[in-house]
């Protein structure tokens, strides 16, 4: 893939459409949560769509992705079908993980989407192993490892950054810095709030980009991935972003001001890209309505698929606790 991003009409609409798919899917999830169709924890990605959509443009089918617990957007951008995702949210056996994982544990073997990890930072060592295995087996693949800035509080972040740099593992560390680990502002938890600065301590390259701009993210990710494929070295990409909604469905948001949320909403990645495409003459009258209608139809079909899904028989409860063979 080239590092050059040709933001022509087709590519602009693709980015817009992908972000819209995530936004509308999750809007529906929130609604279905209120309707008690979806339970447990539900962490919405609203506001952070540009990060996943931008990064995924740099990956090919041979590459791997390790996600966080706020990973619906990462999964959708990676190409996990929305209907399998929604069925998973419903706890149905037709879900991508047969309803065993739920919102926080989306896995898709075919797309090398390796979870969905609800222990902050715990996906980072996994990403090292995947990258190591790829290299030992002669594959040119890279592994994109998503985590929030809260993961930088964890020892696993530092252990993983060190080992990746030491062993020159092709891992793209994608920090989605949304400024809050649950309700704690980054400045209360981190002595150095510019997460990408930490890369220097491991002799690793890194940079911060505007995580509200999918094009900026894509450009940076393509540049990093291209270098990684040649040199095999890891890279830390800090995407500065913001979640518009609460941490989870149980969060009263006592820790941040409405004005702050509104200020960030003005930087909404979907609105920004839409406006830019319009000004550049790439977005034609009717485009937005058509996109919205297509996405709405996809979400509606996913909900119908999930509704029509079935429950795994309880007799199968213990299936896959241990495996009879390694799936191929």
């Amino acid at each position: 893939m080239s590092t050059k991003v040709h933001l022509d009409r087709a590519h602009g609409l693709l980015l817009l459409r992908e972000m819209l798919r995530i936004r509308r899917f999750e809007g529906k999830c929130a609604e279905l949560y209120q309707a008690q169709k979806i339970r447990g924890f539900l962490h919405l990605y609203d506001g952070q769509e540009a990060v996943s959509v931008g990064v995924m443009q740099a990956l090919g089918p041979e590459d791997a992705t390790v996600g966080t617990y706020r990973e619906h957007g990462q999964a959708i951008a990676r190409g996990v079908p929305m209907d399998l995702l929604m069925a998973e949210m419903f706890g149905k056996v037709e879900g991508c993980c047969r309803g065993r994982g739920g919102s926080m544990h989306i896995f898709d073997r075919g797309r090398r989407f390796l979870g969905g990890n609800a222990i902050v930072g715990a996906g980072m060592p996994l990403a090292l192993g995947v990258a190591l295995a790829d290299r030992m087996q002669g594959r040119k693949a890279v592994t994109a490892c998503f985590f929030g800035e809260g993961a930088a509080d964890e020892g696993e972040f530092h252990e993983s950054m060190n080992l990746a740099a030491l062993w020159r593992l092709p891992v793209l560390f994608v920090c989605e810095n949304n400024l809050y680990s649950m309700g704690t502002p980054v400045g209360i938890a981190e002595a150095e709030t510019a997460i990408w600065h930490k890369a220097a301590g491991y002799r690793m390259g890194g940079e911060a980009v505007d995580g509200m701009d999918p094009v900026a993210v894509e450009v940076a990710a393509r540049r990093a991935v291209e270098r990684m494929r040649e040199e095999g070295t890891p890279y830390l990409l800090e995407c500065r972003t913001y979640r518009f909604r609460a941490h989870s469905m149980f969060d009263a948001q006592l820790y941040r001001a409405k004005e702050e949320i509104e200020a960030w909403r003005a930087k909404d990645p979907i609105m920004r890209l839409r406006d830019w495409l319009e000004r550049a003459g790439h977005l034609h009258p009717g485009d937005m309505d058509r996109l919205e209608a297509e996405v709405e139809a996809e979400v509606a079909a996913a909900v119908a698929f999930a509704e029509a899904g079935t429950l795994e028989p309880v007799e199968d409860l213990e299936r896959f606790v241990t495996m009879d063979e390694v799936p191929r």
């Binding site: 791997a64 390790v66 390796l114 715990a122 980072m124 060592p125 996994l126 990403a127 090292l128 192993g129 995947v130 990258a131 190591l132 295995a133 790829d134 030992m136 087996q137 020892g155 696993e156 252990e159 993983s160 060190n162 080992l163 030491l166």
Partner: peptide, 28 residues
């Protein structure tokens, strides 16, 4: 060195890397 790997004192990272490598086709 490829088959006998000294690791840093990072139990979480190298055990997790073992898990990732196992998932991705190796037998660590």
């Amino acid at each position: 060195e490829a088959r006998i790997r000294d690791t840093p004192l990072s139990e979480s990272a190298f055990v997790g890397a073992g898990i990732g490598a196992a998932i991705a086709g190796m037998r660590p």
